[in-house]
């Protein structure tokens, strides 16, 4: 394996560069996935049947908390990658663990939010609106959940194997994924919650 030392560790081998480009392309596909969900959401948003509309069930407090947690986590993982570039393994791991904890906090709020909706009579089966609402939020939430597992695996690997071209590459790609989820959340916050509350 040829290692190019003029590049940052995560870009230093041919395979690493391929992995990063491949993952960007995968994110392109993910954009299409969420775009389709959003398009469906906009189509079905007013089709509430006998169920509640968004304005009746959305609450600003948990949503703001979720937004705060996820946006902060995206910032923190940026710090983690910065630390990785500088070769500070310990700092990087600390930032990564904080990222994951913030993600876990986000997920906790989201789950309680879902339970609240359920008690207010908005379930997956209530109307086309609630179906698409839960599916869109749930797809994002499932991505975050998967990310928590994935991130944990990467933390364990960096801890055990140190910063190698492989682990650096995985960490960097994970950070791309995490930022992507953050961006999707900004759209969810704006077009589902903000728009839905007015």
């Amino acid at each position: 394996m040829k290692i190019d030392h003029s590049q940052p560790l995560e870009y230093s081998t041919e395979q690493n560069r391929l992995n990063i480009l491949g993952f960007w392309i995968f994110l392109g596909a993910e954009i299409m996935l969420f775009a389709t969900l959003f398009a469906s959401y906009f189509t079905l948003v007013d089709r509430t049947g006998d169920g509640p509309a968004g304005a009746r069930i959305f609450e600003i407090t948990p949503v703001l908390a979720e937004t705060f947690l996820l946006l902060t986590s995206s910032f923190v993982i940026g710090l983690g990658i910065h630390a990785m570039r500088l070769g500070h393994k310990k700092a990087m791991l600390t930032f990564f663990v904080i990222t994951l904890l913030l993600g876990l906090g986000f997920l906790g709020f989201e789950i309680t939010e879902f339970i609240t909706y359920y008690h207010e009579g908005a379930t997956l089966q209530t109307s086309a609106f609630t179906s698409v609402l839960f599916t869109t939020l749930g797809t994002h939430g499932a991505h975050v959940t998967l990310g928590l597992f994935w991130g944990t695996f990467i933390v364990l690997q960096v801890k055990k194997r140190g910063l190698t071209p492989e682990t650096a590459n995985k960490s960097f790609i994970f950070s791309l994924y995490w930022h992507f989820l953050d961006i999707v959340w900004i759209f969810i916050f704006t077009f589902i919650y903000m728009k839905g509350m007015t």
Partner: peptide, 29 residues
């Protein structure tokens, strides 16, 4: 293909979990 992925997820959920995406009632389309 991601569009198909989403459509199939919705179709599966309509059939298995009684969601209302494509239903004739409760606002489905």
């Amino acid at each position: 293909f991601p569009v198909l992925t989403v459509a199939l997820i919705m179709g599966t959920m309509d059939r298995l979990f009684a969601t209302k995406f494509f239903a004739m009632t409760d606002g489905g389309m």
